[in-house]
Design a protein around this nucleic acid. Structure first.
Lengths: 134, 134
DNA sequence: TATGCACCCTGTAGCAACTACAGGGTCAAG
DNA sequence: CTTGACCCTGTAGTTGCTACAGGGTGCATA
């Protein structure tokens, strides 16, 4: 399988596939006579794993760790759970942050009565102690 | 006021202040004899504005637009509202994405029964059609 | 006077995780 | 034999900073 097929099968950019190889996330595949990358099913499986983990918001380093762990078949999977849980905590924090921000932003927009810039509440709220912006 | 005071007053990194000057968000201030930046209250006001807008998640380009709009005092503030609303929509989208992700991630972690890596549900869910990862 | 220290200067390189070229080579079809 | 789709390497750009390296300034203290 050539890189284009790998990429389209996993809904990945071709450049991204090469990038994953460059940073050591995907092992370098065999090459054809014309120097084209030639992938096997194990590459496809690995790239699918990477894509799914990335879609779930795991960082590249977390993906690297998960891939690494997935090869130690006899090992306790508690570490896998720890990586996933750490990520969950992070996601929860982001949701909380964005929700707070959304509330503030919503209030800002609510307050806009539609006049001119001179008495725009949004700008006023952004620049609380200033009437003269250079 | 020297850069250090500007920075600490607005809880900004000194490098960030210089960065804002470099990208044209903050106008270059006067210099002292020793070539130190010397800021006035209008710089402080503008930097405060930038900080607040950034804290609300506006991008640098959005901040630039808001600053620009804030100077056209007679102008209709509808454009300001449009920028803020566009950002709100974006924030809502991010919250929705993260919430969906959180649900999937939560389910993944729930399913972990704590055995070995070989039968870890988390890894299984990540690599649906593979038992052999290179 | 020397010297130590906090502060300031410019310029460049690094971070995450790609994406977008530029400038070429390969290969199958018509 | 040429057209076009695909592939190659390598480098630079994106966002919004942050972190140096390698210097200069300015004030207080010994």
């Amino acid at each position: 399988m050539k890189i284009g097929e790998m990429a389209s099968t996993t809904a990945t950019n071709i450049e991204t596939v090469r990038y994953y190889e460059k940073i050591g996330l995907l092992p370098p595949p065999a090459r054809t006579g014309g120097n084209y990358r030639s992938y096997g099913p194990e590459h496809l499986a690995r790239l699918s794993f990477i894509r799914r983990a990335r879609d779930l918001g795991f960082s590249i380093e977390q993906v690297r760790a998960l891939l690494d762990l997935s090869q130690r078949r006899g090992h306790d999977c508690a570490t896998v759970d720890a990586v996933a849980t750490a990520h969950l905590v992070e996601v929860d924090r982001k949701i909380a942050d964005l929700t707070a921000l959304r509330r503030e932003l919503g209030a800002l927009i609510e307050s806009c009565a539609g006049g001119t810039v001179a008495d725009c509440r949004i700008l006023e709220a952004l620049a609380p102690n200033s009437s003269d912006m250079a």
